[in-house]
Write a protein that binds this DNA or RNA. Structure first.
Lengths: 156, 156
DNA sequence: TCCAGATAGTTACATATGAAACCATATTGG
DNA sequence: CCAATATGGTTTCATATGTAACTATCTGGA
């Protein structure tokens, strides 16, 4: 018999990463949904809109997509839902008829201000098993791995 | 105006984890699909079946689910597809009429033996931006974080 | 000016996924 | 022995998601 190559899923980094992420994201998604009626894509849109300065005109859907690592379809759908719930506003661009400025509504801002501390608390709890220096190390490693992957769409 | 709490997605660990994982998993899924006609759930089933010893009777669907962090519905569907493609076999349990033993077919084993080195190469490339000691550190941190999360389904 | 792309965003379609209902078999307490 | 319940596994249904097609607008060059 051929001496088989073996692969232990529990030792396979992409698998471990996937399981961990699904657990965290799933738990967070449940919380967002239960307490704020938000999906993660919706929350991501609100999160980037919450960062724009007071006087600024808002972000286009494309800018939102860029900053959330979502594709434009996901953004379009999340925006439609958030608009229907009056959590964000849409205003025409002065010069470019294709573009709309998106921003949080007053109601959306109120929700944003509730979700942010909540999200930060969840992150803190997630990281609570690590020491401060381990957190920093993990952060750096994530950055390094992400940097290594962005350029290789094909992942030869 | 109230001094708003802020949240920068790019500094939010669950978000960063999610983006990284989606990139890796997406790239791997594309490769498995292109070259072997496998989805990730299907491959996970094959991966755990590939680990059982020669004389062993095979794994039940529930055991497969336990070892792959998939739920029984996902397993059922992956198993159905793999059976149709004759990549795995199903045999009745001697005593328990509900249970079936699953194992790789000869054809499935041949594919398994192709995929394993391929998967290991992808993992190696993914980790190639890290030094050996960084890999070890990352591995340990993943384990610690996973351990911290498993017990908290609720993630208070 | 006007046409050939490029870009913003939405829609449609086909597939994937999760939750819950469901069927069959096993087990357990009376 | 037999109900009540638990377990293994599949199916159903409703929703989520990705790809590709589509509309509308804009830009740049002949």
């Amino acid at each position: 018999m051929p001496s088989k190559a073996q692969l232990d899923l529990d030792a396979f980094t992409p698998y471990r990463l996937s399981v961990l992420t699904n657990r965290v994201s799933g738990a967070i998604a449940r919380h967002y949904s239960d307490r704020f009626g938000l999906t993660i894509p919706q929350w991501r849109v609100m999160a980037v809109l919450g960062q724009i300065k007071a006087g600024a005109p808002g972000l286009s859907a494309r800018e939102v997509a860029d900053r959330t690592a979502m594709d434009k379809v996901q953004v379009s759908r999340a925006v439609a839902t958030l608009l229907a719930a009056r959590r964000i506003t849409r205003a025409a661009h002065a010069r470019d008829g294709r573009v709309a400025h998106l921003a949080l509504s007053a109601q959306g801002l109120a929700i944003y201000n509730q979700v942010v501390p909540f999200a930060l608390a969840l992150e803190k709890q997630f990281l609570s098993v690590l020491t401060a220096s381990e957190c920093k190390a993990f952060d750096a490693l994530l950055a390094k791995l992400s940097g290594g992957i962005t350029d290789m769409t094909s992942f030869t």
